[in-house]
Write a protein that binds this DNA or RNA. Structure first.
Lengths: 194, 194
DNA sequence: TCAAGATTTCAGAAATTACTGAAATTTCCG
DNA sequence: CGGAAATTTCAGTAATTTCTGAAATCTTGA
């Protein structure tokens, strides 16, 4: 591998991290390389930068495309496919969340649902179904929230993040305000606590 | 493996899913088994239920303990260690998030921070650092939000989830109300778009 | 249509990870 | 203590995953 030190360290770290997920080292490295590269790269350039075989790069690129994490970018007068990552890190986050949901959460939800349909054959099984139902409810709530929030534009999402747990205080404040405001509709006056 | 059908299907699914994460099949199965079991189980019972070797179970239990995902539970008049999962699925979620953050996010953040300290040796490297900075900012915002939200009691967390993206509407409503409520505050007036 | 360039496929090699059985160690009761 | 029960360790094996090189396929411009 022959890269400027910062890029190299970044690429290597992603390689390592990759294996903590289900992703293999090379795929992680390819992604990281494309992420930091100022220009789209073709397969041959990736081979040179990472020192892995051409076929390995080909498979890695295929996997990353299946994840929608890289975009093919055509360079004029060049037959070879070049690839980049999206510029917007928020977009990358969205894609990642979406894909992981699709691959990990959705299948689980459907298995759980199926298991909850069966009629229990024993007391132990009844208990198992109860536990499964708890998990199912939790996951469903999380995904509903996610489906809801994922549509927000970046700016709002960022605002929400910045607010953090303070939203709950806000909820309470709003309850209070609204309950005060409602009697007089649009003719309300500030209260001392506001 | 000799389990009631529902439990068995659940355990097998978790085994499969395990491999999509970094977790191995046996660990996933042990966890699932303990999760659905109405009573704490000891290692020998896990061996029987899953049909894997005693030593494999021993290692799996160790890993699950390192993740704080299972709790040893003493059974009176029995020398053997028994294990369960926490009853509260929200608590389980919190633990999972915390551990994954510790193992995956924190190390990445620290690597990124380090790379941002270096002075760039070339234009390509300067660009790489810019990209790394974007990623760093995003991750830091997410973890700040997480640190903030994780302290909420379950009930509030659930309320927040249930609200979903509607919080943004609420935010706007609150702005409006507050701006109406404090006409003199910073000398501002509501604009037509508010 | 052909040929050079580019990419993909795939069978086997290499590397990694998971699992086992046997031996070692720990625990704790008498 | 002594020793039975329980657990852990670990070296070796099995299983899985990753990676490669060679061959097949696809693409495009002349």
């Amino acid at each position: 591998m022959n890269l400027p030190p910062v890029a190299q360290a970044f690429v290597l770290h992603f390689g390592e991290m990759g294996s903590r997920w289900g992703i293999n080292r090379t795929v992680g490295q390819i992604y990281a390389l494309l992420y930091v590269s100022p220009v789209p790269l073709n397969a041959e350039q990736i081979v040179e930068a990472l020192g892995v075989s051409r076929s390995n790069v080909s498979m890695g690129l295929r996997e990353l495309q299946a994840w929608n994490l890289i975009i093919p970018k055509h360079i004029p007068d060049d037959r070879r496919d070049h690839y980049t990552t999206p510029d917007d890190v928020w977009q990358i986050l969205r894609t990642l969340a979406e894909e992981r949901k699709k691959r990990e959460v959705d299948p689980t939800l459907s298995v759980l649902r199926e298991l909850l349909m069966q009629s229990p054959g024993s007391e132990a099984e009844r208990h198992a179904q109860e536990r499964i139902a708890e998990m199912h409810t939790l996951i469903e709530r999380l995904t509903t929230w996610y489906d809801d929030v994922k549509r927000l534009e970046t700016e709002r999402l960022a605002a929400l993040l910045a607010l953090g747990a303070r939203v709950t205080r806000l909820l309470e404040a709003k309850d209070k305000i609204v309950s005060l405001a409602r009697p007089a509709a649009r003719n309300r006056r500030p209260t001392p606590t506001e």
